[in-house]
Structure formats: C-alpha cells, structure tokens
Write a protein that binds this DNA or RNA. Structure first.
Lengths: 204, 204
DNA sequence: ATAATAGTTGACTGATCGGTTTACTACGAG
DNA sequence: CTCGTAGTAAACCGATCAGTCAACTATTAT
C-alpha cells in the first residue's frame, strides 16, 4: 500500500499549539492546516471533523506527558517530594511555553474543556477522562504521604481531587493574568490544603 | 431628544447568557441580537464591537452580584460563616442556572477570561479586574477569622488568592463534568486550605 | 512492470462571520 | 406643532467558516 504520511502527526501538533493559545472556536481548520503545512483535503482524509482532531491531539499530548509524570511521581521519590518536583516542573515548563508562544498558556485540558462546555461533548468527555488519569498521580502520592504520617488524609481520592482543583485554578489564574507569579505559590497553597506541617521558616 | 431604548440592557443580558453557556468565540453577534430581539444596526449603535459588549456585560454582572456579596460577606456575620454561606449560595445558584440553561455553567469570568487569553486583552483585563474585587471579600473574611483566632493566616491576601484559585478550580471542574457534585466539596476543601479546626464529626 | 490504493491537491459549497451603510422613524424639547 | 436627533431597520460587505469532492500522484506489494 502506498505512501507514508506524517500529515496526521503534523496536524495534531499544530492543533494542540494553536488551540492551546487561541482557544477551540477561535482556531480554524484553515489555520491548523496552514501551520501544519497540510492541505485541507488531507485533513479530512485523516479526521472526520475538527472536534475529532482536537480529541486526538489531547490524547497525543497525554501520551507524551505521561512519561514525564511517571518519572516525577515515581514511588522511588518521597511522596511530598513528588508534588514539589512537579510544581517546580510546571513553573519551568510554563516558562518555556511563554517564550515559545508569547503568553502564559496554563493547562490545555482546562481551558479547552471549560470553553466548549456542553457544546462539544466529545471534547469535554476527553478532557474529563484525561484529568482523571492525572488525579491518580496526586492520589497515590497523597496516599503514600498519609501512610508515612506526613499528612492526615483518610480520603486520599477526595484530597487529590481538591488538590487538582486548586492546581487548575492557579493555572487558570496564571493564564488570565498572563503571569508566572501565581505558579510560584503552588507549593504553599498545596501544603496548606494537604495539612503539611511546615518545617521551614521562610523569610523574616 | 428622541426615544428611550432598552436595547442596551437587552443586549448585555443576552450576551451574558449566551457567552456564559457557549463561550465567547462560539457566540455570534447575530445570536446575541436574535436573543435580545434587537437588530444589528442597533447593536452597533450602542457598542462599537462584540468585545466591548462583553466587557459591558461583565461589568453589569458584577454590579448585580456585588449586592449579593455585600449581603453574604457582611461584617455582622462571623467570618467563617460568611464563606460557608457563600458556598451554599453557589450550590443553589448553580442549580438554578443548570435548570435554566440545561447544563452546569461555572464562573462566567473564568471561562471567558481563560478562553480569550491574550487574544482579547480588553476582556481579559476586565475579568482580572473583577476577580480582584471578589478576592477582597475573601480577604477580609480571612483577616477577621485570623484576628479571632479561628485560623492562622498571617498573610490574608495570599490566603484569599489561594482560596479563590481553589474556588475557580472547583467551578471549572463542575462545568467540565457538568455536575453540581464538585461544588458540595467546596467547604471541606476550603476549610483544609484555611486550616480550620474541624469541630464536626461527619458520617461514620 | 504494474495494478491497487493510501494519500494529496485545489477548487468548490452554502452558511455564517463581524461589521457597515443608508434611509427611515418615532419622540421629546422648544 | 414641528424640528432635531437618538434609535431602528434591513440590505449589504468581503472574509472566513467547516466541510466536500473528484481528479490526481506516488508508492509498494506483487
């Protein structure tokens, strides 16, 4: 069978970046095709709609970032350290993205999922599905921290959900304020939420 | 001078509802005019762009909700009670909106502000501005709670910001999941974040 | 070599986009 | 009563929207 194509990958990559920065509705299929250097006919050869492409792009993005998460949330790392490392990673990563795209982007799941709401159920469901996967990383870290007596969290899943909500909220604030500053407070807020006993004496 | 018009009010009202449900980019000027029963010519007689209308709609919405907030966050009410009352109000209000619009809407500031990002700076700035006003209500409640020894919060502003982020995150989750359930955890999450000593023994 | 087919291309659709224009109309101040 | 004007109406603009289509092309398994 004929021809090997990279159009699919180029399209998902372009869609992810464009929609992350400009939003789903504001990004046109033509924009995506232009950035991917793929003609529209090819687009619809691989995807039956713009929504389907976005869903594929979100899944693709998860597949990429899960590797990083597996590393950061390794059970070999002390549980609270995992979270701290992750927050630090987020600051660094969002800094890179800001340089690359010109403004603070925040979380690609939350902005898109929240934007399309009930108007694109497929996309909304996909964001929910992936979010649940992410929460599991928080959950096991919290459960381990509880087991080690570092925090008191009898309901690890509920705590993880709360922490994830807080995290998303901070990311949204950073995006709207177009500033990395809110991200630097991630740790202190998370520690408060989790009831971590503060060992360090900061500042004054 | 001739004629008194309600077109302006009808337009802001329609814009608020439509954009809250469907997002900014996905809501067309024609949609807004149709719902408001106002012709496009009148639209552009009162507003010079779609963005300007949305900004006016957000301000209008603030003016309406500030009255509720003034009531809920009255200094006559014990500080933690203010927050608890507010969370309860949010559940009720989102329930009404869900019936009226058919799905969970979340926060109109956050969805829109996050959607338009840097593409509509006027709208983004307006959402930021209003958000800051809301945070002040949290801040004074937290400061009062600290003064009364109910919580330990030497930096009330930072705590308020963290709480607001958490709140926004929960609202976003409710919208994406199209469920009121996440909202019912607002209090427990907030209390954890604020370090409120739990008096009650819930459930088992 | 060639046939079957995955992939490409660009022109095309009709609808809709945000916004403009121009003529008209209703009303309140003098 | 009537005149100036705030407001209304509807047709209209070029651009862009998501999606279609039929002709074409390059590949590769045979």
């Amino acid at each position: 069978m004929p021809r090997v194509s990279h159009a699919k990958e180029k399209l998902t990559e372009a869609a992810l970046g464009l929609i992350w920065t400009s939003g789903y509705a504001a990004t046109s299929v033509d924009d995506i095709c232009a950035k991917a250097e793929v003609k529209k006919g090819s687009f619809y050869h691989f995807f039956k709609s713009k929504a389907e492409l976005e869903i594929a792009a979100l899944e693709e993005n998860w597949q990429r970032s899960r590797q990083v998460w597996n590393d950061l949330f390794s059970p070999a790392v002390p549980p609270l350290q995992r979270l701290e490392d992750y927050f630090q990673f987020v600051v660094k990563r969002q800094g890179q993205l800001t340089e690359e795209y010109g403004s603070v982007l925040g979380c690609p799941l939350c902005s898109v999922g929240s934007e399309v709401g009930s108007r694109e159920v497929g996309i909304r469901d996909k964001t929910l599905e992936i979010m649940e996967r992410y929460v599991k990383y928080f959950e096991s870290a919290i459960r381990d921290a509880d087991a080690q007596g570092l925090i008191v969290a009898p309901d690890a899943k509920a705590k993880a959900t709360a922490l994830y909500s807080y995290f998303q909220g901070v990311m949204a604030q950073a995006r709207i304020a177009n500033s990395l500053e809110p991200l630097r407070e991630l740790k202190s807020g998370a520690w408060a939420l989790l009831g971590v006993r503060q060992v360090e004496l900061v500042g004054a």
